[in-house]
């Protein structure tokens, strides 16, 4: 366990000056800021809207692209960046000749990638809430402050986070095995497009394909047969989310045995 914690801290230490780490912070900031500016400039068109609609418009603008493009591509990028740091520096050999178990080194690296995705999605929640409330301060006509959806937003993003784990585990393994950028990126991109097509066509088995999961997660988030009086209810644990988590667990363990067998070139 000690080796795991040390390795995890080292992952942070190494990556804190890289684009991979800062992208995890700047991406949500930039997108939420952009949306804030958009709502601010176009505020006349939005005045008079009920607060719940405002929130749905504001959060929905991000969630719309999140499932289809943003989350899968960002996950692919993070999986690449965490591994490329070692490929570039040719440090796999020194990493695996440290007196730390291979489990700890591999597990800490994977966990750090999971952590970065979690961090980004958490920041999306915080910035969405923060900028929404800021809008009601700078444009009092927009009554964002009259409705609260912190809990629902948190649930939606938790669902998205869980739905990205399948993609992450696959991309993590691909990026670990291949040093170059194009192979994992290319495969990831093609799979994402395929996943989006399958999900938009409502293919009945697309819940089994990890690259469809973020999109399916968005489609299945609203609890069916809701009583409108109860407000929005989020269904986190749908079958696509379970499949995503199961794939993550299986590929993670499989990846360890591949690392174990793999000769360190």
């Amino acid at each position: 366990m000690n080796g795991f914690i040390l390795s995890f801290r080292s992952e942070f230490y190494k990556s804190r000056k890289t684009l991979g780490f800062w992208a995890a912070i700047l991406l949500p900031l930039f997108i939420c800021l952009l949306l804030f500016v958009g709502f601010y400039v176009k505020s006349e068109k939005l005045t008079g809207m009920p607060p719940i609609t405002l929130w749905l418009q504001f959060a929905g603008a991000i969630l719309g692209i999140m499932g289809s493009l943003l989350l899968p591509m960002f996950t692919i990028f993070i999986a690449y960046s965490v591994n490329s740091i070692e490929h570039k520096a040719d440090t796999w050999k020194s990493l695996f000749s440290l007196p730390i178990s291979r489990w700890a080194v591999y597990g800490a690296k994977f966990s750090y990638a999971v952590f970065l995705i979690f961090l980004t999605l958490t920041l999306f929640v915080l910035f969405t809430i923060g900028f929404g409330n800021l809008l009601s301060v700078v444009k009092p006509d927009l009554r964002f402050d009259n409705y609260h959806m912190e809990k629902e937003l948190g649930q939606v993003y938790l669902k998205l986070f869980l739905s990205s784990l399948g993609i992450l585990s696959i991309q993590f393994l691909l990026s670990l095995l291949w040093a170059d950028f194009l192979k994992p990126m290319g495969i990831g991109f093609v799979c994402t497009i395929t996943g989006v097509i399958l999900a938009t066509k409502n293919w009945e088995y697309c819940y089994l394909f990890p690259y469809s999961h973020p999109m399916v997660a968005i489609a299945t988030m609203l609890h069916g047969g809701d009583n409108p009086a109860k407000g929005i209810q989020i269904d986190i644990f749908t079958k696509d989310v379970f499949v995503s988590m199961a794939i993550a667990a299986v590929v993670f363990i499989l990846g360890y045995f591949i690392v174990l067998k793999k000769s360190i070139k």
Partner: peptide
Amino acid sequence: IEQPAIYQHLTGKENLLNRALL
């Protein structure tokens, strides 16, 4: 082993600090 394994984006000292941490 062969050419030294060094993180190019870190300073020399940070490379050592990272290893010292591990």
